[in-house]
Design a protein around this nucleic acid. Sequence first.
DNA 1: TTGAAAGCGCTAACAG
DNA 2: CTGTTAGCGCTTTCAA
Lengths: 318, 318
Amino acid sequence: VINNQPNVSEATRQKVVDVVKREGYFPNPAARILVTQRTQVLGLVISQFATEVFADPYFPTLFQGISRTVNRHDYALMLWLGESLEEEDRFYDRIRHIGLIDGIIVASAVDDDLLIDRLTKDNFPFVLIGLPPNDEANTVDVDNIHAARVAVEHLISLGYQRIGTIAGKRNLSHSRCRLDGYCEALRAAGRSVETDLIVDGNFLESSGYAGMTTLLQREVDAVFCANDGMAAGALRAVHEHGLRVPDDVAIVGFDDLPLATMVEPPLTTIRQPIQKLGGMAAEVLINLLEGKLSAPYRAVLPTELVIRGTCGAVRRTA
Amino acid sequence: VINNQPNVSEATRQKVVDVVKREGYFPNPAARILVTQRTQVLGLVISQFATEVFADPYFPTLFQGISRTVNRHDYALMLWLGESLEEEDRFYDRIRHIGLIDGIIVASAVDDDLLIDRLTKDNFPFVLIGLPPNDEANTVDVDNIHAARVAVEHLISLGYQRIGTIAGKRNLSHSRCRLDGYCEALRAAGRSVETDLIVDGNFLESSGYAGMTTLLQREVDAVFCANDGMAAGALRAVHEHGLRVPDDVAIVGFDDLPLATMVEPPLTTIRQPIQKLGGMAAEVLINLLEGKLSAPYRAVLPTELVIRGTCGAVRRTA
DNA sequence: TTGAAAGCGCTAACAG
DNA sequence: CTGTTAGCGCTTTCAA
């Protein structure tokens, strides 16, 4: 009766339901897990690297998307934040064997992530938010290359000449793709990619500030930042150098977080559907677990260029 | 052997350890839970109201503190984000009975939170981050009243005359305490509390902006904001009105989030040890569960006034 | 110090 | 359609 099986008479069902109500009965999940071998719990893993950017609203937004979907399917969600790298071994075992989980969402993996390797080798179900690291992995992502390309093409179409970029850490597929998109756009427009105009950041505001300080010396007139946080830092650097945005320097960000509308001028940026990305990851994982989808499954969500105030109108023609 | 019991010979122990290694054996957690009645899992609940402010770095920071402590004790962490209020009933049952958890950390409860009532009534172990809602509750918090008072006293000591405040939602103990502290400081200085100078916010940047816009019309020369996000909004409003900070208007925030140093001028604010707050909550809950602490347990963590650039030097004397 | 046995609360299979 | 039973993998107790 409890599990809504079809072959019970209405009378019996009613009787049982009554007793359940009266006694406040709940099935013991541990016993159920023991026999079904299913926990109805998903694990969400944020690897070590990400903890430094963890305060970025990107993650909470992702959580909300995941949580909503997980709740709707009557699953639960276990959270694992990576600690130091040395502990990764122990970390993996804990997640995998003590974790009581049916599958894992990996929210932010670096290249050659130990976790991904192990998961793949052990054939444990997981969905990665990012680029597929191997042929078997299930992934959910946006097309970062395309999105970045759109951003930079926007800059080009407005007539900017020396377009730099502040990239994220190179061991992240997101960062590399956005950088690739930047290069593609430049080449497609018949321009050369100057390595001088590519500086490294780490997604934090401070690194955007530092990166922009460098780029300003190299006389860029526009910059594409791999996320909004760095774009905000870049904006601050431009202002502190006594220059104006977008008159002297244009800026495009990536993410479209709330802060994009809080800075002055508001940020032109690429919107990615973060919440949906999380929801989709959870949805895919659950469907995979329930056999409604077969691995490897890949989903790509659309992005959108949001034009605000950091790029100005069309200005010069080359 | 597995559970490190004392009465096993070294030889046997070694033999077992070898086999475990070789076979890659892990005890089945469900079976263990079934018999021990302990899951070694903590639940972290963020109630419905908070989801709107969830992107504020406050929560990720709290998570990190909790997660670290939880990991160190070899516990795991289950995450529950509140959904719509109508669902609260179902939500409670899920957390409580399907949740596989030994205890709960409630990160942000509103007054008369259904969850708290139920937990208390059911005598289920939990730790609340905030003010004790009843005599039995275990809590971890900072002294918000005192902290707010220090903030406003700072403003008073610098000679500001018309000091307003942008408060958070009144159904949150944090908000009320910070407002109380504001009032206390004013009264202690022999000033009257003008209700005109108290405006309501919701912890979001936008509400700080709106609140400041109102307060500017009422000609404040200083404002205490219940969090840094609103302080950033207030700052934006002041700038857009063509006024300068701190020359025309002084601002004090609360939290000391990274953004405090990212705005211009950097924010004078109250620093609260968010990560420690989370760690302490987890620590207390675990100790409670393991009988090393007895309920009700209360911890109060210290805060600190961080002076930066939004309050200026001493200027006028009354 | 070790081995054997009971039982945690459930689901699934099968007999009535 | 309903009632009974075996067994999931562990911990705990008790006997050897």
